[in-house]
């Protein structure tokens, strides 16, 4: 009962400030440009390989690759940073604005509050996922259709991929909550999200792909696990070691594990501190 009330309250918290639509807008814009743009560029380059080579544009896409999944999954492969940010802000914002006081007065069981945030951000992450995939599929399919490529929208596999992508976005929301609970300082949490997703992890994944041993470790990196869950992605096609990636359900479990472990550790440490 109190968990349900806490979830309802956390939903209201998300939707009564402007951050959610700001991030949703950025996400949609980002995915629109990349999925639509790359869709058009790849479509053109594959159709006109000579012209593409002449302009120095090497797509790096092996011949025979299906373009549709590659373009659609931009939604999660570049968009996952948004649910993480929103999830982290849901926790760090309480510290920053010192609203833990009214929050814990209304619900003194702190684990219920954190549980409510976790569930809420899973759902919000899924919502962002739906928005992102609607954008990538909409703009990507339009671009592909313009170059007379198969959009794949009549295939169950494509829709399964989209479903897994939405699930990945949901789990990233949970990871955000865990990160916020571990690092309650808002600025620090944001810096960690940006630095890790944009620099640290891509470099680690690239470095890990150079040997078999590191590659088998590297596939447990959250971004790699996420790509494994979703399936095709720009990154996994770019890196040669795509054969070593996890199964989709393993990828999902890795993401869920990171989210739960981070939230539980944060919940047992910073979340239990004195609120002064």
């Amino acid at each position: 009962m109190s968990l349900l009330r806490s979830i309802a309250s956390e939903f209201q918290k998300v939707f009564t400030t402007r951050m959610w639509w700001l991030l949703a807008l950025l996400l949609v814009g980002y995915v629109l440009v990349l999925a639509g743009g790359f869709g058009a560029f790849l479509g053109w380059a594959v159709r006109n390989p000579d012209a593409a080579a002449a302009t120095g544009g090497n797509t790096g896409v092996p011949p025979g690759t299906e373009l549709a999944p590659l373009i659609y999954t931009f939604a999660s492969s570049i968009g996952y940073v948004f649910p993480v940010l929103l999830g982290a802000l849901a926790v760090t914002g309480e510290f920053r604005h010192r609203t833990l006081t009214p929050t814990f007065l209304a619900e003194p069981h702190r684990s219920i509050v954190l549980g409510g945030k976790f569930v809420t951000q899973l759902v919000v992450g899924a919502g962002l996922g739906v928005a992102a995939f609607a954008t990538s599929v909409g703009s990507g399919a339009a671009a592909l259709a313009a170059f007379d490529f198969d959009t794949g929208l009549d295939q169950g596999d494509t829709w399964a991929l989209i479903g897994r992508g939405v699930l990945a976005m949901a789990l990233w929301g949970g990871i955000g909550v865990g990160l916020g609970a571990l690092v309650p300082n808002q600025v620090a949490a944001i810096v960690i999200v940006i630095a890790f997703t944009q620099f640290v992890e891509p470099i680690l994944r690239l470095a890990a792909s150079f040997s078999d041993v590191t590659a088998s470790i590297g596939r447990f990196l959250p971004g790699a696990a996420s790509d494994a869950l979703v399936g095709a992605s720009f990154y996994s096609i770019m890196s040669t070691g795509s054969s070593s990636s996890l199964d989709w359900w393993q990828g999902g479990l890795v993401l869920l594990g990171i989210a739960v472990v981070a939230t539980v550790i944060g919940g047992a440490t910073t979340w239990r501190r004195d609120v002064t």
Partner: peptide
């Protein structure tokens, strides 16, 4: 109004 509503909801 939203501030109060958020906590009213949490407390049922």
């Amino acid at each position: 109004r939203h501030h109060l509503k958020v906590y009213a909801t949490a407390a049922g």
